[in-house]
Each structure stands twice: as structure tokens, then as C-alpha cells.
Design a protein around this nucleic acid. Structure first.
Length: 514
DNA sequence: TTGTGTTTTATTGCCTCC
DNA sequence: GGAGGCAATAAAACACAA
């Protein structure tokens, strides 16, 4: 009898048991803080979680292996991408070949394992793993809320539970990166994230080819593709006047005012958002510029990587189309995409689904009429490419259900102000509108300054063709015109336009040319 | 519902370090 | 030699598509 009981007990113990969400959450949290916990830590943790020390040790061991595996996969992926593109990317794939070749005893071998400890805060692959965990774990949200009372370290855990790939998650409240543990910094070099990561993912052969074709003409800090801009309207930057009372420059007086003016007017506000965005990402980029990146979004899981990778291709030349939809949704709805972790989540189920619903319900409205964003301006102005509404709808229909597009959504929402539909909305939106206007003041100012600088420093051959601009600009004030010009100028203004957008634009143009 | 693929957990053996 | 860690392996649990 006793032997039978023992047998049963052994069987019971032998049969693996899934750890509860709370346990996993706690373990993950601890793992972020201490990649290599001491025996005391393990004991304490085991006691708290009702596990054995052996289980805890094993979990940490497997967790490290998981990290390593994900890192290796990511590195291999990047390495293949580099090969396929024929260009050695100076960012985003440093680890690749080295780690691909040898895995014995891990890629951390060259580092003191202890030095690797506590790097988890910056370890994006952990986030990816957590994202994978979330996919599997329907209780994640509960766990997340459960940890609400936790202290600082738990905040990261909570973020984990949300599994947002938002690169700003680790930013300090003031938007700056938290102080970097030198030890962590070492590891950081291997873990690109945020913009750099996304960029590395999407920088497919098409973009590479475009860059190759452009050669010297492609300057990240210079005019784009030789697009000609019209000269700055006289007095465009004169003292700001009441947009209602003041006369305004109108290159084409025949054009009536239209709601687009509102949308266009909003564009400058994006600069402030862009600045913030770029601040975040550029800060991260500064850490990513190292020889070796991998990336948390890619690290999500092998399974998801397989699902995601094919979507990195530009089957949809304008994946950003959904973004404006998203923007509309968020600008009028509850949470803005800019602040939403979910919208930064790359390749997450929710994000994709959200996009689908957006496209399905709103795309027809969003692409009626003329271009409303700087990107649209470019599309109209460049090579006289006139996209019909139908075509645009098709862009939407071919909604990119991929991580990149999802990332674009979040970026897009930063790029674009509210669409013209905002103008049509009821007065109930005026409150939100005022908020935009507030930001517009700052944004316009910065844009105008930027534009003025450009007017001095750069030749004017890069002015957008006036027709295209006039066609799209309902002008209500001189200031609006200056804003319009500033928006156009943002395409070659390095501080306003993200390289990410440039890449997409290049890819789009490349598609057109093909 | 089922088959397949992925992830997680547990176990074992080997290696390195002290 | 013991402790700790890594890698390999098996099996259970899970996710997802057909």
C-alpha cells in the first residue's frame, strides 16, 4: 500500500504542473531583476510561491535558455536578412553571425554571467517571451492587475503583463532613458528595440534596393528624392495672425476652403509628438547603434516569428494606410494610439485585430477626397501619382496584419494629426480639438522655425510643386500656409521626419516605379 | 474534433569553477 | 568533490488550423 502511495506520489510529482500565472508573473518579475538569483533568493522565492527551490532553479535555468534561444533565433534572422538584402547593415544585426555559429554554453560565455544579471530591465527578448506567455496565458490581465500594488520593479512587470512592445515602457517619466546599468549596457548592445528594431525588421531588400539606387542622393538628413518644392510663399513666416481675420496666402485662390485645412493645420502638432517620439526612439537607437542587435519584438517566439516574417515584405505598399484610421479611432475614442501599449505591440493579436476592425469600418471615409497628410502630399506630388479612392481603399483592404504594420500604426498616429473627418465632427469633439490646437501652437512654431532655417540653409529647388500643394490646401490663414509648407518641408527635415517614414516612403515610390 | 506544431516543465548528464 | 549552470531530451500543456 505504502509503495503504491509512493508510486502515486512520484507519479504526481513527475507529471509536470504548469505554474500559475501569479507564479510565472512573480518569477518573471524576479528574473528581470536577477537573472542569476542566489540560493537565498531562490529559497525565498520558492517559499513565497509555494514551489521548491529545485523548481525555481529549474525555471530560471530554462528561462535563461529561453532567452538565449530567442536571442540566437533573432540573430540568425537578422543575419539572413542581411544576406538577402545584400547589404551589411550597420545596425540591428551585430550579433547575428557569431551567435549563429556557436551556441555551446551560450552567447553569454564571453561575459561573466554575473555581469549579465539584472540586465533584464533592458532585455527585450524577455518582453518577447512575455508576450508569448501572454498569448498562452488568458490570465495575464488578472496577473497584471494583481501586481498593481507592486513597487517600482513591479511596474516593469506590469508592463510585461501588458506585453506591450512599446519602447517607451522603460523610459523615465520625463521621457529619458533610465540610468543604464553598465552591466546592462553591455547586454544592451545585443538588444535593439523600438524604432531600430522595427526598422531592422522592415528594412527588406526593397528598401535596400531603393537606397542602393538612390546612392548618394539618399541622405537621411537631406532632401528626399530630388522632389521639387515650390518657393516659400512670401510672408509665410510673418507674425502670426488670427487665422480667421487675417488674409492668407493662397497659391490658388480658386480653391475653396476645405476641411483638409484642419487636418493639415494639425500636422505641425505632430512635430512635437514627433520630437517626443524621436526622443524616445533615438535614445534607444543610441543604445542600439552597437554592432549587434536583436530584438524583442522578434523575440516574441519562434512561432510568431514565422507568422510575422513574411509580413515584413511590402506586399502592401502603403501599410500605413490603416494608421490614419487608427488615429481617427484613437483621437476620437478612448485611448490614443500614441499612448497605447497595445498599439506598440508588434505582432500581437490584439493589435492586428484592432486594425482589422478599423479598416473594415472606416477606410472608405478616410480616403475620400484629397491627400491630407504630408505623406499624402508626397504621393500626390511625386510623379503625379494620383491614387484614386478605390485604390486607396484597396490599400486598406490589403490591411497588413503584421507586426510591422502595427508598429506603423503607432508611428503613424504620431505622424498624422486628426483627419479631415475631425473637422466634420460635432461640437462634442471641440474639446479634443482644442487640445490639438494647443499642441499645434508649439508644433507650428517649431515647424516654422525649422522651415525658416531650411529656407536659409538649403536651396529652394526642393519645394513641392505648387499645384499639388495648392490642390490640397484649403487655406484659412497665412499661418496655415506656412504650416503647410512646413509640413512639406518635414519630408526633408531630419528632425521632423523619422527615417522610418522615409523608408516606407521610399519603398512606396519604389513600388510605383516598378 | 483532431492533428500538428510550439511552449513549458522536469529530468539527466556534462562542464566549469571554487 | 560539490555546487551551479548549460544543453539535450522527453513529455505534458497549449494554440491553432483543417
Amino acid at each position: 500500500m505504502q509503495s503504491d502511495e509512493n508510486k502515486v506520489a512520484v507519479e504526481k510529482n513527475k507529471k509536470r504542473k504548469l505554474k500559475t500565472p501569479a507564479q510565472i508573473s512573480a518569477l518573471e518579475k524576479f528574473y528581470i531583476e536577477h537573472k542569476y538569483p542566489t540560493e537565498e533568493m531562490k529559497l525565498e522565492l520558492a517559499e513565497e510561491l509555494g514551489l521548491t527551490e529545485k523548481q525555481v532553479s529549474g525555471w530560471f535555468c530554462h528561462r535563461r535558455l529561453k532567452d538565449k534561444r530567442l536571442l540566437k533565433d533573432e540573430a540568425c534572422t537578422n543575419g539572413r536578412q542581411d544576406i538577402s538584402s545584400g547589404v551589411i547593415q550597420d545596425r540591428g544585426s551585430g550579433l547575428g553571425q557569431d551567435s549563429c555559429g556557436s551556441t555551446k554554453h551560450g552567447d553569454y560565455r564571453h561575459l561573466d554571467p554575473k555581469e549579465v544579471e539584472s540586465r533584464g530591465r533592458y532585455s527585450n527578448d524577455i518582453l518577447a517571451a512575455d508576450m508569448a506567455h501572454e498569448r498562452r496565458n488568458p490570465y495575464s490581465e488578472n496577473v497584471s492587475s494583481m501586481d498593481d500594488t507592486s513597487s517600482e520593479s513591479s511596474s516593469s512587470l506590469q508592463d510585461q503583463d501588458s506585453y506591450g512592445a512599446d519602447p517607451s515602457r522603460y523610459l523615465m517619466p520625463n521621457g529619458a532613458l533610465p540610468p543604464i546599468n553598465p552591466k546592462g549596457a553591455i547586454k544592451m548592445r545585443y538588444k535593439p528595440s523600438g524604432y531600430l528594431k522595427v526598422k531592422g525588421e522592415i528594412e527588406n531588400p526593397a528598401i535596400t534596393a531603393v537606397k542602393k539606387l538612390l546612392g548618394r542622393n539618399y541622405r537621411e538628413d537631406g532632401p528626399l528624392l530630388g522632389i521639387e518644392f515650390d518657393p516659400i510663399p512670401p510672408g509665410a513666416f510673418e507674425s502670426q495672425m488670427d487665422p480667421v481675420q487675417e488674409p492668407y496666402y493662397n497659391a490658388n485662390p480658386a480653391l475653396p476652403n476645405s476641411p483638409e485645412s484642419y487636418a493639415v493645420k494639425r500636422q505641425p502638432s505632430l512635430s512635437s509628438r514627433y520630437d517626443l517620439y524621436n526622443t524616445k526612439f533615438s535614445s534607444q537607437d543610441s543604445h542600439m547603434e552597437g554592432p549587434d542587435p536583436s530584438d524583442f519584438q522578434d523575440n516574441k517566439s519562434r512561432h510568431n516569428s514565422k507568422q510575422r516574417l513574411p509580413l515584413c515584405s511590402y506586399t502592401n505598399p502603403v501599410p500605413r494606410r490603416n494608421s490614419s484610421l487608427d488615429l481617427y479611432e484613437h483621437s476620437t475614442g478612448e485611448a490614443s494610439a500614441y499612448n497605447s501599449n497595445k498599439n506598440h505591440r508588434v505582432g500581437t493579436k490584439h493589435g492586428v485585430e484592432g486594425m482589422k476592425s478599423d479598416s473594415a469600418s472606416n477606410h472608405s471615409d478616410h480616403y475620400e477626397g484629397i491627400a491630407r497628410t504630408p505623406t499624402d502630399w508626397m504621393m500626390h506630388g511625386y510623379d503625379n501619382v494620383n491614387l484614386t479612392n478605390v485604390q486607396r481603399s484597396e490599400y486598406v483592404k490589403s490591411k497588413p496584419s503584421n507586426s510591422i504594420s502595427n508598429a506603423c500604426v503607432s508611428m503613424e498616429t504620431k505622424d498624422r494629426g486628426p483627419t479631415a473627418r475631425m473637422e466634420k465632427k460635432s461640437s462634442g469633439d471641440r474639446k479634443a480639438r482644442r487640445q490639438y490646437d494647443d499642441s499645434d501652437e508649439l508644433g507650428m512654431l517649431s515647424n516654422e522655425i525649422m522651415f525658416a532655417q531650411r529656407g536659409v540653409d538649403l536651396p529652394l529647388q526642393h519645394n513641392v510643386k505648387q499645384d499639388s500643394v495648392a490642390e490640397m490646401q484649403p487655406r484659412k490663414s497665412q499661418r496655415c500656409m506656412s504650416v503647410h509648407c512646413a509640413c512639406v518641408s518635414s519630408f526633408w527635415c531630419p528632425t521632423l521626419i523619422d527615417n522610418f517614414l522615409v523608408d516606407y516612403l521610399l519603398a512606396f515610390i519604389f513600388m510605383i516605379e516598378l
